[in-house]
Amino acid sequence: MEMQTTVLIVDDEPDIRELIRLYLTNEGYHVLEAADGREALELTRQHTVDLMILDVMMPGMEGMEVCVRIRKTQWMPIIMLTAKTGDLDKIQGLAVGADDYVTKPFNPLELVARVKSQLRRYKQYTNAAPVQKNLLSIGGVTLHPEKRQVWVHGQPVHLTPREFDIVALLFRHPGVVFPSEEIYERVWGEPMLTSNNTIMVHIRKIREKIEDDPKNPAIVLTVWGVGYKAAAHSHPGRDE
């Protein structure tokens, strides 16, 4: 029997928690609730949480701080929930490790759809396919796809969820060149409608964390005019 998926709702407004809980339980999810950030952190220590819906504005510990603390040890998808509408707030939430952002007031059906989408992408890396349980290694960089952990020369390194997904995609297909548009569509799960620098910025941050010499990468390589690839061999290469 398949284990029930657990979603943690973190919001200081009981009515909001109740509304979300009703829709999620109707979809068959097991729901936990927390009224503040500290309670949320305690619940994540006591239970296996598959996804978190996290309010930004809460008394005591705000959602941004909760997200930062969670990301030190756990990689479940986090959907930020907030009354703020500014792009800066959204960017800040994504920068600290959130995977999606929903603005209040929200359509509960849309929130449920986003929950399903995030869980579907997350489980691509955590389900039981044997290849996903194997360690992926290139050079001195090793990934554990199931636990979403990364080591560089044996030392643990923190990647954001998006950064991890990009590296995992490239490491699963060493030597295969992925255009930026395809990387975006596979990792974000939606078309890249306009040309932007999102992938380039993420690749730069990844290199700063995993390459011995980020300016002369040997692991994540650029194929100019085409896209990016992981080095095809375990020994250091050089950027093309």
Rank of each mutant, 00 (worst) to 15 (best):
residue 6 T to E: 06
residue 7 V to F: 10
residue 13 E to T: 01
residue 16 I to C: 00
residue 25 T to C: 08
residue 28 G to F: 05
residue 28 G to K: 06
residue 29 Y to T: 03
residue 31 V to L: 08
residue 35 A to F: 00
residue 35 A to V: 04
residue 38 R to M: 12
residue 43 L to D: 06
residue 44 T to S: 04
residue 46 Q to C: 05
residue 46 Q to N: 07
residue 55 D to E: 06
residue 56 V to S: 06
residue 56 V to C: 09
residue 60 G to L: 03
residue 60 G to D: 09
residue 61 M to P: 04
residue 64 M to N: 08
residue 67 C to P: 04
residue 68 V to E: 13
residue 73 T to G: 07
residue 74 Q to M: 07
residue 74 Q to T: 06
residue 75 W to E: 11
residue 76 M to G: 05
residue 77 P to V: 09
residue 77 P to N: 06
residue 79 I to N: 02
residue 79 I to D: 02
residue 83 A to D: 04
residue 87 D to V: 15
residue 94 L to Y: 11
residue 96 V to D: 04
residue 97 G to I: 02
residue 98 A to V: 05
residue 99 D to N: 15
residue 100 D to A: 07
residue 101 Y to R: 07
residue 102 V to N: 00
residue 103 T to W: 04
residue 107 N to A: 06
residue 108 P to W: 00
residue 108 P to N: 01
residue 110 E to A: 08
residue 111 L to C: 06
residue 115 V to C: 07
residue 115 V to F: 00
residue 116 K to C: 03
residue 119 L to V: 01
residue 120 R to C: 01
residue 122 Y to C: 00
residue 129 A to E: 14
residue 132 Q to K: 14
residue 133 K to H: 15
residue 134 N to T: 12
residue 138 I to N: 06
residue 140 G to T: 14
residue 140 G to W: 10
residue 140 G to F: 11
residue 141 V to M: 05
residue 141 V to N: 04
residue 142 T to D: 07
residue 145 P to C: 10
residue 146 E to H: 12
residue 146 E to Q: 12
residue 147 K to R: 14
residue 148 R to W: 00
residue 148 R to C: 06
residue 149 Q to C: 08
residue 150 V to I: 11
residue 152 V to C: 11
residue 152 V to Q: 09
residue 152 V to D: 02
residue 153 H to S: 14
residue 159 L to I: 14
residue 160 T to Y: 04
residue 163 E to M: 08
residue 164 F to C: 05
residue 166 I to P: 00
residue 168 A to F: 08
residue 171 F to W: 12
residue 174 P to S: 07
residue 176 V to P: 03
residue 176 V to Y: 15
residue 180 S to A: 14
residue 181 E to R: 15
residue 181 E to P: 04
residue 182 E to Q: 14
residue 182 E to F: 01
residue 182 E to N: 08
residue 183 I to H: 02
residue 187 V to P: 00
residue 187 V to R: 09
residue 190 E to S: 10
residue 192 M to S: 07
residue 193 L to E: 13
residue 194 T to K: 13
residue 199 I to A: 02
residue 199 I to N: 02
residue 203 I to D: 00
residue 203 I to N: 05
residue 204 R to G: 09
residue 206 I to C: 07
residue 212 D to A: 11
residue 214 P to N: 11
residue 215 K to D: 14
residue 215 K to I: 10
residue 217 P to Y: 07
residue 218 A to T: 10
residue 218 A to C: 12
residue 221 L to D: 05
residue 222 T to M: 12
residue 223 V to W: 08
residue 224 W to C: 10
residue 224 W to M: 12
residue 225 G to K: 11
residue 225 G to N: 11
residue 227 G to R: 04
residue 230 A to I: 09
residue 233 H to W: 11
residue 236 P to T: 05
residue 239 D to P: 04
residue 239 D to Q: 15
